[in-house]
């Protein structure tokens, strides 16, 4: 066995946490209790979990608009996340950020991000900072296939390679940029190819297999910690829901959706665990039950929390200036 039982059960717990958090968000969004836009990570859990299982608390990640999974995987607190989605003052961002803007500096989470491609630059900058300070921290940049058409991707790849920065570019190729399929947004199929232009090692792998993801990221993290520079890892995956909740996803052929549902990363991981007799069915069930309890706790916390005071809207813009409030 290459992976310890502790790590396996930890990864399984995180995958279930993400899945159940997202299902809950979906339900409450549909009921109109969660406002705004919510982009769910259901189907892609293996990537965030497999990648973050290699990271320490002081390593950095940058996330995307589809960020809940990365935040949970990096150790984010479900209660503060849930409260944020409901716009409550106890949320990660005191209700000022919402689904697309959750961050946790203490866990190195430099933010989910509503701007496609923005994370490439920030992750690269964080890696530069780690390198400059002489730490062995690494920076993992999560992003989708479509963001590799942004200039930010190329600017970041170029600098990371040139300065040998400890950054791991983790592409979650879910085959669509919103409604536009990969074939309609770029001529390549394997995004890993783009690394060649930057003399950067890269590979393409199955993103629905958490063990595969874990192993590839482990190698890349090792390289980064050793000062050997960046890596581009492309993981093929599929989001099971629409781009955001409320998007029926009619642009995707039924057969394609069906085929990918068969490759759902969670049952696959369960099967792998059972076939290799790494954990028992009871042990898996117990984790699932505990996660259900955690989600319920997070919901209770969110419901019991207050909405933010209106005057908080003019705070936290600057470290030292509070803006003028309305007189009404």
């Amino acid at each position: 066995m290459r992976i310890s039982k502790e790590l396996l059960s930890g990864m399984y717990r995180k995958m279930q946490s993400i899945r159940k958090f997202e299902k809950t968000a979906s339900t409450f969004f549909a009921e109109g209790k969660i406002p705004g836009f919510v982009h769910l990570y259901i189907g892609e859990e293996a990537i965030a979990v497999g990648a973050c299982a290699n990271l320490r608390d002081d390593d950095y990640i940058t996330s995307t608009h589809r960020g809940h999974g990365h935040i949970v995987a990096k150790g984010g607190n479900l209660k503060y996340m849930m409260a944020e989605l409901f716009g409550k003052e106890t949320g990660y961002c005191k209700g000022k950020g919402g689904s697309m803007h959750i961050a946790d500096a203490e866990l190195g989470i430099l933010g989910a991000n509503g701007i496609v491609g923005a994370g490439h630059l920030i992750a690269t900058g964080a890696a530069w900072s780690a390198q400059y300070r002489g730490s062995d921290q690494v920076s993992v940049c999560f992003f989708g296939d479509a963001s590799t058409n942004q200039s930010t991707f190329h600017e970041a790849m170029n600098l990371a390679s040139l300065w040998k920065l400890p950054v791991i570019f983790v592409c979650e190729n879910n085959l669509y940029g919103i409604s536009v399929s990969q074939a309609r947004h770029q001529t390549i199929k394997d995004i890993a190819k783009r690394a060649e232009g930057y003399c950067m090692p890269s590979l393409t792998a199955d993103g629905n297999d958490v063990v595969t993801v874990y192993e590839h990221v482990q190698e890349a993290v090792q390289r980064a910690r050793n000062g050997e520079g960046p890596t581009l890892l492309e993981f093929k995956t599929y989001r099971q829901h629409g781009h955001f909740e409320g998007d029926p996803g009619a642009y995707r052929p039924k057969e394609e959706v069906e085929a990918w549902l068969q490759k759902d990363p969670i049952p696959r991981f369960e099967k792998y665990i059972m076939e290799n007799k790494l954990m028992t069915a009871d042990e898996l069930k117990q984790i699932e039950d505990e996660v259900d309890g955690n989600i319920q706790e997070a919901l209770d916390f969110a419901f019991a929390s207050n909405y933010p005071a209106l005057e908080s809207s003019v705070q936290d813009i600057y470290s030292d200036i509070v803006e003028e409030a309305r007189s009404r």
């Binding site: 500096a105 490439h120 630059l121 900072s129 200039s151 970041a156 170029n158 600098l159």
Partner: peptide
């Protein structure tokens, strides 16, 4: 590469520089 000049500065500033 002005995008990375500003963007990397953001990432570096958020992490101690």
């Amino acid at each position: 590469s002005e995008g990375i000049i500003v963007g990397a500065s953001v990432g570096a500033a958020a992490t101690g520089l």
